[in-house]
Design a protein around this nucleic acid. Structure first.
Length: 265
DNA sequence: AGTACCACCTGACGGC
DNA sequence: TGCCGTCAGGTGGTAC
């Protein structure tokens, strides 16, 4: 379930392992390629180049090449990166294998093939085409309010809408709403100043904390809901019982006693 | 604008 | 033992 903190962790991993090495070969599973990208185009853009730096917008990771093109990875539900020395160490569901001139490899593994691999010659155009809203860790308080304004759906669905804010998925929307003490099914239209302050603060706290924890729920603070995503689990806030529900078709966990409608806190 | 539902895809798990 | 239905959840399409 790679969301913003997971992808940021992958970005840092790519930074730490894969920069400034000439790409000798690429092997790609064409089924994961974005529209209008062929294995030949990918090979042409990558071969002989280096990853000069990385970037991220929401759940998309950009490997910025020395020719100003970009390798763009989306991790779907099961994607991850691995850097290794021996070809035989390639993970089981490698969909993209990049071979560097120092003999090392970078693999993009995506077991369930729900991720995408793309090439972006122009990052702004890519973001426009995908209709991505501001990055959830980059957006300021006023732009956050602006992004939510005019929407009337459930808060959870709105937070998860990548064209409104990019980076938040099912798991972190639940965590943010738990920390903000807001019910996930409340309408975003009902949020007032105090609620928006709490929601914005919780969004930043949760995402920053998760990045620090390298998106590993096992390292999350005891006050977090994520490690307890089970119906009937104990709420870390009140000791009550965690409930599950479906909101916009997504399995949602929340505490009915800690989380209130807007205006009730 | 929002939601409901489906499809994509694979592995884990429970029931029989 | 193994088959089958269900679930996981990111995205995108269609229908309402």
């Amino acid at each position: 379930m790679p969301e913003l903190p997971d992808v940021e962790t992958f970005r840092r991993y790519m930074d730490a392992t894969s920069l400034h090495q000439r790409i000798e070969h690429t092997h790609v599973d064409a089924n994961l390629l974005d529209d209008n990208v062929t294995p030949q185009l990918l090979q042409r853009r990558l071969k002989g180049q280096e990853i000069a730096r990385t970037d991220r917008r929401g759940k998309y990771l950009f490997g910025c090449l020395s020719n100003d093109s970009r390798l763009v990875l989306h991790f779907g539900m099961t994607g991850f990166l691995r850097y290794f020395k021996s070809r035989s160490d390639a993970p089981d569901h490698t969909r993209l294998l990049v071979e560097f001139n120092n003999g090392y490899f970078l693999a993009y593994d995506c077991r369930r093939k729900l991720g995408t691999i793309s090439i972006a010659d122009d990052m702004d155009e890519f973001i426009r085409k995908k209709d991505l809203g501001p990055d959830a860790l980059d957006v300021g308080r006023s732009a956050f309010e602006e992004a939510l304004s005019g929407h009337r759906g459930a808060i959870k669905s709105t937070l998860m809408n990548q064209s409104i804010l990019s980076g938040i998925g099912n798991v972190y929307s639940d965590e943010i709403l738990f920390q903000a003490r807001l019910r996930p099914d409340a309408s975003v239209d009902d949020l007032r100043g105090n609620d928006l302050d709490r929601l914005f603060g919780a969004m930043r706290d949760v995402l920053e904390t998760a990045v620090e924890c390298q998106a590993d729920p096992g390292r999350f603070p005891d006050s977090y809901l994520t490690p307890r995503r089970e119906p009937g689990e104990t709420c870390p806030g009140c000791g009550g019982s965690i409930e599950d529900a479906k909101i916009s078709g997504r399995t949602t966990y929340f505490c009915p006693s800690c989380q209130k409608d807007p205006g009730e806190i």
